[in-house]
């Protein structure tokens, strides 16, 4: 039961960029299209789950004074592994995500979950937490990407949905558009949360 709760909280109650307002760097940078957001979310999820599990295993070994350094080491290793694996076997994904993969290292969600959850809880729950938060992150990024792609390009996941005469609102897929879009979603989320 608790496993389920730890998993489900990441999907709405603590959905990372919207409720926790963490991990804004990839949220703003890669969500120009729904697919980009999805792949970035999946890569992050993989790293998050792996690092959560490993850190949870090592939580009694790592002295608290050097824990951040140890976490970063673990996280960075997984990120590099993901990058190399992607390059070698799924190069098209790597082409889309490109420079954003190394940025996962400094994504505060991963360090945040390691510090706030994995360092205090068992392996199973840490796995659930990592998976839940990761999937929540993926949903959020895909959602944001879909909105920006819909208005900015006129398509979702590459499929044109707007009529051919639609003049794309290109502001949405540019950097300032990401800020405005995220800001509006954050505002609406907190409005919904209030009621």
């Amino acid at each position: 039961m608790r496993f389920y709760q730890e998993f489900i909280k990441g999907l709405w109650k603590e959905i990372p960029p919207f409720k926790l307002v963490l991990g804004l760097c990839p949220t703003l940078a890669v969500t120009a299209a729904a697919a980009n957001g999805f792949y970035m979310g999946m890569a992050t999820t993989f790293v998050l789950v792996c690092s959560n599990v490993l850190i949870s295993m090592l939580r009694k070994v790592i002295p608290s004074k050097v824990r951040i350094a140890a976490y970063i080491l673990v996280i960075a290793s997984f990120v590099v592994i993901v990058e190399m694996m992607m390059k070698a076997y799924v190069f098209p994904f790597y082409q889309i995500l490109g420079i954003f993969i190394p940025l996962i290292v400094v994504n505060c969600i991963i360090l945040g979950r390691a510090e706030a959850f994995a360092a205090k809880n068992g392996v199973l729950y840490s796995f659930a937490d990592g998976l839940g938060i990761g999937i929540g992150f993926t949903i959020a990024l895909t959602f944001l990407g879909a909105i920006r792609e819909l208005f900015g390009v006129g398509s979702i996941w590459g499929f044109a949905v707007m009529p051919a005469t639609y003049m794309p609102f290109e502001f949405m897929i540019k950097a300032p558009g990401a800020f405005v879009c995220l800001g509006v979603i954050l505002g609406l989320m907190s409005l919904v949360g209030k009621k």
Partner: peptide
Amino acid sequence: WVILLLSW
């Protein structure tokens, strides 16, 4: 105006 400039 900047939003318009970025879009169209």
